[in-house]
Amino acid sequence: MSEPLLKVENLKKYYPIKNGVLGRVSETVRAVDGVSFSVNEGETLGIVGESGCGKSTTGRMIMRLIEPTEGKVSFEGKNILSLSKSDLRRVRKDIQMIFQDPFASLNPRQTVGKIIEEPMIVHGMGNHKERKQRVEELLELVGLSAYHAKRYPHQFSGGQRQRIGIARALAVRPKLIIADEPVSALDVSVQSQVLNLLQDLQKKFHLTYIFIAHDLSVVRHISNRVGVMYLGKMVEISDSEILYDHPKHPYTKALLSAVPIPDPNSRSERIILSGDVPSPAHPPAGCTFHDRCPVAMDLCAREKPVMKKLEDGRLVSCHLYD
């Protein structure tokens, strides 16, 4: 097997909380607590989890938009975390991000043409005329028209704005695109348009995606492999078919069963988890899921499970499979 395009090892992000009269660090929020995975060229890795599980933080740390506390991120064999500023800039050309909120991530005072051109200027690509032509190509590519370049973001609908975001990400011909909840602000009919666009572009340019989302159906649709996160940790990661058809981790099972299926004929019995996700400042001892787990054992409260590889190739972090 060839070397993966991106390899993330034991990535951590801790936020200290200062408290008391003297401002001592009283507790630490473990937003991401030792996450490892790899992404192969041309594939889509989905990362799912509920709010606060650390999936967005993980995505941002890969690009060093957030500085990791610890860990290693290798992109094409280079450790991103030890790169100098200028080297990091070069790598950032290869890795681009698409954000959730198409309204907030586009500068309202810039024309769409300028927005898409900007990353090319930053990375010194082409002259003015070439860039202009590329902007027009990109707009056509994402299903907009060349004349849209002169307009401003507020003149577009949510779906169109997300297309603009995608065009901007594509402008510098990246290898890896990290999409953070790219369709969760969109209506169903627009969501399917954007998902199809992302798939078409992937085929056309041999792109690699990390697709971060909370909607499990969307993630299954677009991903080859899927990782499930809970409270800053990866609990299960495998090929999406295997994960969705035969989930192993009790959290994955509960998560999947909680999704309302748009089919009134199959009103399935849901696994209803009790309570809320605990605060990442006070994660439970042992397995962080044990206090909500329907099949928790004594061991789970005492010992942290480690990632194990099962026969079907999946990785799971649960004492049931010791």
Partner: peptide, 9 residues
């Protein structure tokens, strides 16, 4: 338009 949780289109 909705992606299916149980089968991949």
């Amino acid at each position: 338009s909705i992606p299916d949780l149980h089968s991949k289109k």
